[in-house]
Design a protein around this nucleic acid. Structure first.
Lengths: 194, 194, 194, 194
DNA sequence: AATGAATGAGTCTTCATTCAT
DNA sequence: GATGAATGAAGACTCATTCAT
């Protein structure tokens, strides 16, 4: 009985990730996911109530892992400037390393219905909060401008990185995503002015 | 007689815009769009080959209008810094003024399939190029940093604004979008550093 | 354009009657009904909202016809005794002549869910009322016992005939149903006592 | 050890009765019955080959009990007229006292397929035969009309009572079923004529 | 050109039944 | 015998698209 109790649960998520990445959410029939996961169609419904719940769970799990990695790498007491540079590096690095996840996050997620996206949005929250924390620490330490709107800034930072990743994917990943981290961090920190 | 032809063509686009805004992309059946446009279901297929082509055309038309507005407002010889500030203002202003369009652009149109999104991406191109022009002029004039990666920067700028608009919509438009323009432009120009 | 507008509507009802009679309600897949009706699966949903509505409509139509036949044959001013005898004759005669309808009415209808049966019950109402009318006229004219409970009697009469028909069907229709009319009417009129 | 076997067997029947009465036949999944019976899903298949066999057994058991009660109350040598009156009383009384059983017998169990109903029909046979016995004794004793068709009469009597019970249930049991026994017996005995 | 009735391919989900433990 | 996780067949319904009028 060394088998993991949730063995099938994770097999399904894994199969779904691969299937969504390859075919997109709407063209990923439940039977296709089941085959990719190596389980019967009906088995999926022992672990998920609706097909959409697979996507929701997938995001919760994967973004949870991602945030954990950030938390592990970013020292709460480190220099906010260093933290922001590191954030860019990890963001690009992790998505470049897990292309399936990147595809699903950047491209397929957006195909889901508005209600579904709202539910998934909750999974992004901790990551947005993490960005906010860095910005806030920067302001408080005097490293960042005192007049920054923290809530606005976290969106700008997230949105900017998000678009870079999406563009990289749509263009066919012809260049290194990781290599954009420095330019991105510079943009955030120094802005455009000479 | 081309005018009459255009009449139905635009009626369909108009009906589609209203229907997408109200029901979202996936719940906007062809028959619903036809009813909103005041034409028969079959008529739509005299003007569009597939349902998806309505989306593509809608995007092309609406983003074309938007870019035209930008071009009309932004003097090619104006100060790049002023141009960038103006860009933010117009971007937020136009979307705040036409919520239907904002909803469709930011939320509903992204529900389309990957291949479709690639096609729609072409419609964004002129706008991205417009941003690129401003950045390039800034670099060439010495107003912006010489070491800027123009291609990267245009994505960062577009992505950042895009996320702010989306967030504003999802949050229920509880604050002024236009009011975010100054902070956004400051972020782009001065960055975060004190 | 001499085509009947409801041509397909009745084709579907006809196909459904044949299919239900042969396979029963639950084993009559929509696609089977469509094939029997000579239409596409989807066409059925232009005329009926749910599969169950076909059954409901079928009963409404068929029982409507049946009641019309009764009304046509039964003079409101005729002797109640004669009317009751005629009722038995017509009841058995019509069902013997239309075995498909008999099978659906007596056997397949009962397979439907309780809610559905309630809806169908409404179609039986006019027939039950018709029986009640005869009984009431009999009581008022003095031909029938004054102490009869009209509401109870109409159920007893209907239930008795209903069971005879069902039994005849289940036994394989090995004898004449029509031939039971006299004995049935005698039972109703004279009772069992010598 | 057969007693233990019977324990679960009857637990399943009991669970099925409760489940059918509460949810109706079609919404009573095997797993629901198993839960009501306090056994595992698979256990049911140790005692019944198919789900439908539960129904058949339930009918056989419950109607067997009912017939036993009739046999216990009806003296074979009693006056046929009294016997028939008593039959009506017991029939209505027993079903009014056990509404769950009434619901299942009259409404839910009839939702089964035709083949199944044929099998279940066998369970009704002893009761029908019991009615036939009374009628036959009546004819032989001279109490009932000599020209009665015994086979037809047993159906008429059973069908009439059956319909009264069903109607009482569907109407929501707003009146006393037992109170209908006298009128019913009078109808059987004296008929309608004044 | 315009219509809208008709088409039929496509899919999520349920649930009776099995079988490894 | 008992379990309950796993199976996978089955089917109602939707809706983009066609085509006779």
């Amino acid at each position: 009985m060394t088998k993991l109790k949730n063995e099938k649960y994770y097999a399904i998520l894994q199969g779904a990730l691969r299937t969504f990445a390859e075919h997109g959410f709407h063209k990923s029939q439940v039977s296709k996911i089941a085959k990719a996961a190596g389980v019967a169609d009906g088995t999926i419904y022992l672990y998920f109530k609706r097909k959409e719940d697979i996507l929701i769970a997938l995001f919760r799990e994967k973004l949870g892992e991602l945030v954990a990695k950030f938390r592990a790498s970013l020292d709460e007491r480190a220099d906010p400037v260093d933290s922001l540079r590191k954030l860019c590096e990890i963001h690009y690095d992790e998505l470049e390393k897990d292309v399936d996840f990147a595809v699903v996050t950047q491209l397929e997620l957006r195909q889901s219905s508005l209600e579904l996206r709202r539910e998934i949005g909750a999974s992004f929250k901790p990551y947005i909060v993490l960005i906010e924390d860095i910005v806030r620490r920067g302001v408080e330490s005097g490293a960042f401008r005192r007049d920054l709107d923290v809530k606005l800034t976290r969106l700008l930072v997230f949105g900017a990185m998000d678009e870079v990743v999406t563009s990289w994917l749509i263009s066919g990943r012809k260049y290194s995503l990781r290599a954009q981290a420095e330019g991105t961090a510079d943009f955030f920190l120094r802005g455009l002015l000479a």
